[in-house]
Design a protein around this nucleic acid. Structure first.
Length: 219
DNA sequence: GCGACAG
DNA sequence: ATCTTGTCGC
């Protein structure tokens, strides 16, 4: 698939924040609710700052893999909370470009709207590709939330600066919640539904687990 | 000012 | 993210 470079690569943290502030206006918070083909993305770090980036495309109904791509590279930016996306973006974009099928949804490992400037990795990938995207985080990042009930499907809003920016969602009974936020062209209700649907077992969505395993095994 | 801070 | 042992449970 084709991915547009909507910005030059930032040289420092201020430039990176400026990119986020500029692209934030392109995020759309509504979109389709049906996703025949979904993709999971994840990056594995090894050595100094080497990394492998994996994209696994799954049939949206059966959750069977239909295509896999792995790329290798180096972290493209130092780790700064809030600018995390710039580390992995080039490798992930290259992997997406090598896909022969275009997914209907990107399931990203990290945050979308629930981000200090409202533009996390899931928003960034969504805007560059134009595809619906959502983010799943494993630890709280921004905002405040109550602990959801213990049963699968229970959720509470994540509130940041007076706005709901995501949900703490229990994907399995008595398992630590995950943190769901919108990336691009998707409603929060839809993102929540999809995360549950894509997580028939374990804590994290199948697409992310598969991408994690693939990136790890091809280091 | 100090610590904490997606992965 | 990664460095790391054992342990409990399906």
């Amino acid at each position: 698939m084709q991915v547009d470079r909507l910005h030059s690569w930032p040289t420092n943290a201020d430039e990176a924040r400026a990119v986020q502030d500029r692209l934030r206006g392109r995020v759309e918070l509504t979109g389709p609710a049906d996703f025949p083909v979904v993709a999971g993305l994840d990056v594995h770090y090894y050595g100094d700052d080497e990394l492998s980036a994996a994209v696994v495309v799954l049939d949206g109904d059966t959750l069977e893999p239909v295509e896999e791509v792995v790329t290798h590279g180096r972290a493209a930016f130092p780790y700064v909370p809030g600018l995390f996306a710039f580390r992995e973006l080039p490798a992930l974009v290259e992997a997406l470009e090598r896909l022969t099928v275009t997914p209907d949804l990107l399931v990203c490992d990290g945050y979308g709207l629930a981000h200090p400037r409202g533009f996390g990795l899931a928003c960034h990938l969504g805007v560059l590709t134009g595809l619906p995207a959502l983010g799943v985080g494993k630890t709280p990042f921004v905002g405040a939330h109550e602990t959801p009930g213990p049963e699968r499907g229970a959720w509470t809003p994540i509130v940041h600066e007076g706005a709901t920016v995501g949900r703490a969602l229990r994907t399995q009974r008595d398992v630590k919640p995950v943190y769901v936020s919108q990336g691009h062209r998707i409603a929060l209700d839809t993102a929540t539904d999809q995360v549950l649907r894509l997580t028939p077992r374990y804590r994290l969505p199948d697409p992310i687990r598969r991408a994690d395993h693939l990136a790890r095994s091809s280091a």
